[in-house]
Amino acid sequence: MWADILFWVFAAAVIVLALAVITFKNPVNSAMALVADLFFVAALFVLVDAHFLAVIQILLYAGAVMVLFLFVIMLINQGPDELGRARRTFAKAVALILLFPLALVVLRVVENVSKGGGFLKVPSDYGTIEAVGRLVFGQYLLPFEVASVLLLAAIIGAVAIAKRRLW
């Protein structure tokens, strides 16, 4: 009962804030709306017992990644003159076209749920740190390691590009 009510509240907040992210003209407003949005997504994770995912969402996305976003936005600190110029009708059209496949996926999920297909049935402790850890370091060890090597390569690449003058 309460979980249902909370779900609708959080889901509505997620959608409203996501719209706010793309409609605000001021980039700092957008960034802060995205932070709040990530918070409500974390709340949705909590509602489906994915506690570890929720707390990592806040720690990494809201607490670290978005801080860097904000850092860069504040550093550039564009005034209203630069922000008001761009119209980009063509870019908007392309974005709408690209949105179409995503909308199809969402519709499929909604259709599936409304038919009574529902979500996956999982044990209640599947979201704990232990369960996630066993999956990541057991069944999915190889993808996990490959992903971490990829991230390392990206970091080294970023440093190499940024610090080219040092060589």
Binding site: V28, M32, V35, H51, F52, V55, I56, I58, L59, A62, G63, A64, V67, L70, F71, M74, N77, T128, I129
Partner: peptide
């Protein structure tokens, strides 16, 4: 009594930086 006690503290206190950064901006 959360099952990720200390990570919760880290996660929440990592949000505190927005207060300071936003105040500055």
């Amino acid at each position: 009594d959360l099952n990720f006690g200390l990570i919760y503290i880290l996660a929440i206190s990592s949000i505190g930086v927005y207060g300071v950064a936003l105040a500055g901006w």
